[in-house]
Computed example of a mutant assay.
Amino acid sequence: MIRYDLTCKNGHAFDSWFASAGAYDALERAGQLSCAVCGAAEVRKALMSPSVSENATPPARRLSEPGTPLEKAMAELRRKVEANSDYVGDAFAKEARAMHEGKAPERAIHGEARPEEARRLIEDGVPVTPLPFGPKRRAN
């Protein structure tokens, strides 16, 4: 048995089971397919994602859990950065420059900077480095 997502000429979407791909083709050639919603005779296969057997997929894990060694290393780096520095958000360039110029006490910070701000910091000799991850986003 095979299931296809189908659409009719009127834009209705539905699905149907067939004995085989050949059975679908034979019914289509004979004009024996019709829309389950409006009865239109012009029906086509719709784009659909493949069905994957449960045995073929890796064990389920929450999206927040690192799985590969690289993901684990990135998660550990994030943990260390967040535990040992202050998050200053989009004030990063201003804070980094103030510390470099001696106008603010030195401390470990992390945050965000626009590309042109980061380029100016580097050109001016302010010791900064990009992090391989972005800030955590909060969902409502």
Rank of each mutant, 00 (worst) to 15 (best):
E123F: 12
Y4H: 12
M99P: 00
G39F: 03
T129Y: 02
A36V: 02
A96I: 01
R137Q: 12
A104M: 04
N10P: 00
M74F: 14
E42N: 04
E95I: 09
A56C: 09
W17M: 11
R3F: 02
P105F: 02
L131R: 00
R138Q: 09
K72Y: 05
P58G: 04
E54T: 13
G31A: 06
E76S: 13
A40T: 03
R62D: 15
A30C: 02
F92P: 06
S51Q: 10
S34T: 00
K136R: 15
Y87G: 07
A139G: 09
L70Y: 13
H100A: 09
G102H: 09
R107D: 05
P130G: 06
P69V: 06
I122P: 01
F18Q: 04
A23W: 07
E101N: 14
D90K: 14
F133S: 02
A91R: 15
T57M: 11
T68W: 06
D124T: 03
V128G: 07
P58Q: 13
F14E: 04
K45P: 00
A46W: 05
T68I: 00
N84T: 15
A19R: 05
R120Q: 14
E65S: 07
A46M: 12
Y24R: 01
F92I: 05
A98I: 02
V37K: 09
R29M: 00
K136P: 05
S16R: 08
E76H: 08
A46N: 12
L33R: 05
K80W: 14
E117P: 01
M74H: 09
K103M: 11
E123D: 14
G89T: 12
T68K: 09
L121G: 03
P66V: 02
A46F: 10
D15H: 07
P135E: 15
D90L: 14
C35E: 10
R114P: 01
S49R: 14
A41R: 14
T57V: 15
H12Y: 07
P50A: 00
T7M: 12
G22C: 03
A13Q: 13
S53F: 06
D15Y: 04
E54S: 13
D124H: 05
A93R: 03
A93Y: 03
M48D: 12
S20Q: 08
A98W: 06
F133I: 03
T57K: 13
A23R: 08
A21N: 04
V126A: 05
S51C: 03
R3Q: 01
P50N: 10
L77F: 15
E82W: 06
G67Y: 13
L70W: 08
N140D: 11
E42Y: 04
A19G: 01
